[in-house]
Computed example of a mutant assay.
Amino acid sequence: MTTTTQPSAKDRALLIAGILMIATTLRVTFTGAAPLLDMIRSDYGLTTAQTGLLTTLPLLAFALISPLAAGTARRIGMERSLFISLILICAGIGIRSLPSAALLFTGTAVIGCGIALGNVLLPGLIKRDFPGHVARLTGAYSLTMGAAAAFGSALVVPLALAGAGWHNALLMLMAFPLLALFLWLPQWRAKQTSPLTGARALHNRGIWRSALAWQVTLFLGINSLVYYVIIGWLPAILISQGYSETQAGSMHGLLQLATAAPGLAVPLLLHRMKDQRGIAGFAALLCAVSAAGFWMIPGQAVLWTLIFGFGSGATMILGLTFIGLRASSAHQAAALSGMAQSVGYLLAACGPPLMGKIHDTAGDWRIPLLVCAFAAVVMAFCGVLAGRDREITPG
């Protein structure tokens, strides 16, 4: 049972502010390191593949920790679990910024654990406390997350080049979770407990035998694979094509801002469609065209950045929507969500180091970008299948 008291307008406003501030920490503290990867690699003498682990470690944490989030929330509450996620993110940023390659990787993994808790629990908190405003808050949540990530990506390189160094530039990203902790502190005393049922649903083995479930999972998983390869290596790709570090960092921020934009447009379009086959295939093909464009016509990098950001943001929203539309029950939706997250993040974790290794072997980014383009075509095929108006049969 959930015991609640009617919150005042001030309490609800403070809760919304806390939610939006937590959202800012779930991407910028992870992706903010990408514009500095060349500096980090040079400073520590890392190979491209080793540097790619800085993108992979959080993804592995997402895959491993996400299934544990519901159980943690049941034991200590969603509010306190989110507080702990912010503590982990702060601790990880501090560890990552110390002058040691080993601590760089350790801190990155800790950040991933904190983000994983927030990724799973924050949308559930919105559904629980604002059931009549899920669409609006989700749009604001997506936009806030993208805007913070864009700001962080554009800021870290000038800070590093201005004399602060990349260690201190990354350390300054702690401002986001520290402010979120301050705004979230009143929620620590919250007496609410959320009856999450995801853990039991995750044991539904029947979902793993469903072709439709695999189509949804692969649509989300390939989107994560392509997105994290591009978000992780875009600055290095652009620098290799003659762009400055500052330009590459700004482009990296623009990509994340473009990724947030579909959060306001796509939900409005979905209500007018009988099924989602057309929009799913189209959004995925935008990712394919832009990935190829980065190599074939690098002078139009701004255009490809905007197209890729919109396409990847739209496919992510569609994939999350498919989880609810294709499931025939709440328990099955939880099982499908767990399947899609675990498989998707594990698939995404393979991308950055694999593409980095291919770059080291081939000497340029042509093959990695063409692989991403081909993967996006496969994603379009999966999206057309997942977008059909049908449900998974109960298992």
Rank of each mutant, 00 (worst) to 15 (best):
P67T: 12
V378R: 10
G263K: 10
V384K: 02
M296F: 13
G309A: 01
D360P: 00
A288E: 01
A17D: 01
K191N: 11
P131H: 13
R80A: 01
A375G: 04
M39Q: 14
T25R: 07
P99S: 03
L212E: 04
L285Q: 09
L53F: 11
H252F: 10
A280C: 08
A23R: 02
F219L: 07
T393F: 09
I222Q: 12
I95Q: 04
A333V: 04
A280E: 09
L196F: 15
T4D: 07
W304N: 00
A180P: 03
G313I: 08
L86G: 08
T315G: 09
V289D: 00
A13N: 13
W208K: 07
L82R: 03
R205I: 12
F310M: 14
G124N: 11
L20Q: 02
R27W: 06
A236M: 07
L122I: 05
I22N: 06
A380S: 11
I230C: 08
L303K: 06
W365D: 05
V384I: 05
R96Q: 14
R80W: 04
D389Y: 15
A248T: 03
D129S: 09
T29I: 08
F62G: 13
A91C: 13
L179E: 06
I84P: 03
V378F: 07
H167T: 02
L137W: 08
K274H: 12
D129G: 04
T31F: 04
F381H: 09
T56I: 03
L82K: 02
G139T: 15
G139P: 13
I19F: 01
E245V: 00
T72L: 15
G118R: 03
L57E: 11
P186W: 11
D43V: 02
V266E: 15
V157G: 13
L257E: 12
W208A: 14
L183K: 07
G363V: 05
V343N: 10
A33M: 15
I87N: 06
L104V: 05
S100T: 10
I239S: 05
G232W: 01
V229E: 07
A150G: 14
F294E: 02
G299W: 04
L53R: 00
S240C: 11
A109S: 15
T2R: 14
L53I: 06
A102S: 15
G77Q: 07
T108F: 12
L125Q: 04
L179T: 13
V377P: 01
E245W: 00
G242A: 03
I367N: 10
L225Y: 03
L178Y: 00
A201M: 10
L354W: 00
I392F: 13
G118W: 12
A33Q: 11
A160Q: 08
L303V: 15
R205W: 11
R136E: 09
W188L: 14
A340F: 15
I207P: 07
A373N: 04
I279M: 11
D360H: 02
C382L: 11
L269K: 00
G163R: 08
S81N: 05
A34Y: 02
A376R: 00
A49L: 09
V266G: 10
F151I: 12
L306E: 14
I323P: 00
Y227R: 01
F374E: 12
L171Q: 12
E391Q: 13
P353V: 01
T315Q: 13
